[in-house]
Amino acid sequence: MRSILMVLVLVVLMALQSPIFGLLGIRASLLDLPLIATLYLAGSSRALRGFVASAFVGLVADAFTPGGLLGMNAEIHGILFLLALGLAARFPLTRPVPLVLVTAVSSVLKTLLFYLFSILFDRAFEPRVEVLLWGLPTALATAVLAPLLFLPFAGVDRMVQGRRPTESLLR
């Protein structure tokens, strides 16, 4: 139930992201909300449930990525969940600084994985350095705003279980 709500919240946020950013005149892909959802799941869920939910998060991201390869984000987010799960054991993702650092690393890694899978599976993909560079602003913005972007998912937890895994984020 909690994982389904997480995915639904992500769907709503992603659907809102494009028109809201359009009104503000900001490029819609500036924030990587699926990555935030995956990191939140890694820091707050059990391994198996979190992994399955992250794969669905990736599928949602695939659905909202026109022209992309279906399954690419599901694969990437599954891998990133496993990575974040390992990092969460060492760095508490409920703290802003570790969260920002883990988000930045994960975002860069996501860009590299996207590049790699595109080369391997997408016949129409043209490997260019610009593709990698375009990921940097998104990684930076997502990492800086990660503590704030955690809040909607933390709200789901508060609503479902009364848990407050991110209560120390804004201290």
Binding site: A47, L48, F51, V52, A55, G58, L69, L70, G71, M72, A74, E75, G78, I79, L82, F117, L120, F121, D122, R123, A124
Partner: peptide
Amino acid sequence: RFSVIVTTLLILPLGLMFVSGRR
């Protein structure tokens, strides 16, 4: 269970990508 599901959910998207990649 964990290994099986993780492996399945990592292989399944690869298949999807392979199919989608055939433009």
